[in-house]
Simulated scan of single mutants.
Amino acid sequence: MPPIKIGIVGLGKIARDQHLPALAANPDFELVAVASRNASLEDAANFATLEEMLAGVPELDAVSLCTPPTVRYGQARQALQAGKHVMLEKPPGATLSEVEDLTRLAEASPGSLFATWHSRHAPTVAPARKWLASRQISKVHIEWKEDVRVWHPGQRWIWEPGGMGVFDPAINALSIVTAILPRSFFLREGTLKVPENCQAPIAAKLRFSDSEETPITADLDFLQTGPQTWDIHIETDAGNLTLRKGGSQMFIDDRLEHEAPEQEYPGLYARFAELVARCESEVDVAPLRHVADAFLLGRRETVAPFHDES
């Protein structure tokens, strides 16, 4: 089959760091267009908006939306209505209702809808799920701590309604945990620390449990400097499993069992190519639902204002 002609919408840090290299390495795709208000790309047709891109490149097969979640719904709807296949960066939307509406639209359109969770393509996710399937889990703890000034320098949208604050990275942890734990779990209580000049939390502590009252906790921080912490600790009746470095390493009782280079975005585009070939959609909102529950049930604590000093 000929390559899938794809366009990227939003040429920011995540698109340049992850999407462009993944597309360049995948022969199933041909990047033919970019829509961005503030950037352009050589060897591609450049447009200011998705609407202009759709009109200017009618042979386009698919679009990859790398814009902030607050504007993604309208763009995805426009692309689906134009008959294009649509890939959504995480989170798939600003609200669950938006994603539900897009899912219904995709079911009635010729295009596929792929709500991506890149951390589920970390190399230890599948081995961890398999290892846990036959064991009794007694405790889960998530530590997800990183430096917002490194990963989102000058990006004020992340502190506005819909920007999610610390949940922008922490939803990656939730995407892994919802993929590897054998039972669904639910938020019981939480504390969200919100800077006095922001609308989204900069840190959070959450307590979940499942139908068997297994304690599942999360400690999230967007101000950690130095080494970053992306770890998940799981205690079981047959040993302790730890995923480190965002799922790049898997330890059993402190013994390294599995490690591989990060290939998350190549994995996403390989999966998207499969969905496009089959004209199928893949939309799982479980991680986003947990974030919505945190905003719904969590107590808010006002903390010192945040200033981007980068």
Rank of each mutant, 00 (worst) to 15 (best):
T229I: 12
S97A: 15
A204F: 04
H152I: 08
D221C: 11
W159T: 00
I137T: 03
A203N: 09
L220Y: 05
N172Y: 07
A173S: 10
R207E: 08
S209N: 13
G93D: 14
G226S: 00
L223C: 07
T124E: 01
L187R: 12
R120E: 11
A204E: 04
D101Y: 09
L223F: 05
T103D: 14
F167P: 14
E213I: 13
L113H: 04
G111H: 08
S112T: 13
F222R: 02
I180W: 10
H141W: 06
S209M: 01
R149F: 13
R120V: 08
H121T: 04
D231Q: 04
I158N: 00
G93S: 06
S184N: 15
V148N: 02
W230M: 03
E213Q: 06
S97N: 14
S209E: 10
L174T: 15
A106Y: 05
D210K: 01
R156F: 13
R104D: 09
G93E: 14
L192A: 10
D147C: 15
A126V: 09
R156Q: 13
I176S: 05
A94G: 13
R156M: 10
I176E: 06
K205A: 07
E212S: 09
G163V: 06
A204D: 04
K205G: 15
S119F: 03
S175N: 07
G111S: 10
K145L: 08
R156W: 08
W230D: 02
A122G: 02
G163T: 03
P227C: 04
A173C: 15
Q136C: 09
P92V: 07
P227H: 00
D221T: 01
A203V: 03
P92S: 06
R120Q: 11
W144T: 05
W131R: 06
G162V: 07
W151E: 04
L102I: 14
A115H: 08
H121I: 06
L181A: 13
W151I: 15
S209H: 12
W144C: 07
V150R: 12
K205V: 15
I234D: 01
S112K: 01
P123Y: 01
L181G: 13
P195N: 00
R188V: 15
L187K: 10
T229D: 03
A133N: 10
T225K: 05
K139W: 14
G190Y: 06
P195V: 00
V125H: 04
T217V: 12
P92A: 04
L174N: 06
S134M: 06
D221M: 02
Q228Y: 09
H233S: 00
P153G: 07
D168M: 14
Q155C: 10
P227K: 01
L113E: 01
W151A: 01
W117I: 07
E98K: 05
V177T: 12
S138H: 14
W151S: 04
A122Y: 09
A200D: 03
W117V: 10
L102D: 10
V148P: 08
L113P: 05
K139F: 12
P169T: 05
V140S: 03
A200K: 02
A170N: 06
F186V: 14
W151M: 07
I232R: 00
Q224W: 02
W117A: 06
A179H: 14
P127T: 02
H121F: 10
R135W: 03
